[in-house]
């Protein structure tokens, strides 16, 4: 597999906290990927492997004609089985170089919460990083206080792989993240809480394209 240009908008799924997971996620993915190229990361730890595999195949069919990419959180076996595009790993995980030996052509990314771990992830061979939380967000409070834009800039300057900013990202603060070196932005809640997804996406697109 050749590495395609990574989309700059990244959606992390977490249906467990949604009222109608089975219905909401596919509909959201369909709308997102129909409007612009997105990386969709399936992060559904409550699902058994068979259900996750079947959901992956279903989402792939919805994304078929787009330039979007589908990643799985951690389960590189399901990525391989379904022929999805990549796997994303938490900060603490099996080393990326080890994973690379099992899945040579796969896009591999890593969550990082410090400059040190960002540098290690790049050294291990990660293709991209998610760094955050940048701004305050209830979902990410367990990772400590927000990093802020200065740390984002420091990380972005010190690694040569794409860095996606995460944590409290909105269309309004996306430009700031880009100005501080981010390659793109990653988000979750905003796609669910927005009353007009098409407008939110258009605003994201404008902020990312500037």
């Amino acid at each position: 597999m050749t590495k395609r240009t990574l989309p700059r908008l990244y959606m992390v799924s977490n249906s467990l906290e949604r009222p109608y997971p089975a219905k909401e996620l596919p509909e959201l993915v369909r709308q997102l990927t129909a409007q612009l190229p997105v990386i969709v990361q399936l992060r559904e730890k409550h699902l058994d492997a068979r259900t996750l595999y079947e959901l992956t195949l279903y989402l792939q069919s919805l994304m078929h004609d787009s330039d979007s990419l589908l990643f799985l959180n951690e389960r590189l076996d399901i990525t391989l089985a379904a022929g999805a595009d990549g796997t994303h790993f938490p900060e603490k995980s099996c080393p990326i170089e080890k994973i690379r030996t099992v899945a040579p052509g796969m896009l591999l990314g890593k969550s990082t919460h410090s400059l040190q771990s960002a540098l290690s992830a790049e050294e291990e061979g990660a293709d991209y990083l998610i760094f955050g939380p940048i701004f305050d967000t209830p979902l990410k409070r367990r990772y400590g206080s927000p990093m802020g834009l200065e740390k984002l800039e420091k990380v972005s300057r010190n690694v040569s792989i794409p860095v996606f900013a995460i944590g409290g990202i909105t269309p309004e603060n996306t430009r700031q993240c880009m100005d501080h070196g981010a390659y793109g932005i990653a988000a979750l809640s905003i796609f669910h809480v927005t009353t007009n997804l098409a407008v939110t996406l258009e605003n994201f697109k404008n902020a990312l394209d500037q």
């Binding site: 058994d48 492997a49 399901i78 089985a81 099996c94 994973i99 099992v102």
Partner: peptide
């Protein structure tokens, strides 16, 4: 199976709700 592959285990054991 991801752990079995990366840790180079001798194999994997799957239930009916795991990967096919």
């Amino acid at each position: 199976l991801d752990v079995a592959l990366t840790a180079n285990a001798d194999g994997v054991h799957l239930g009916q709700r795991d990967l096919p």
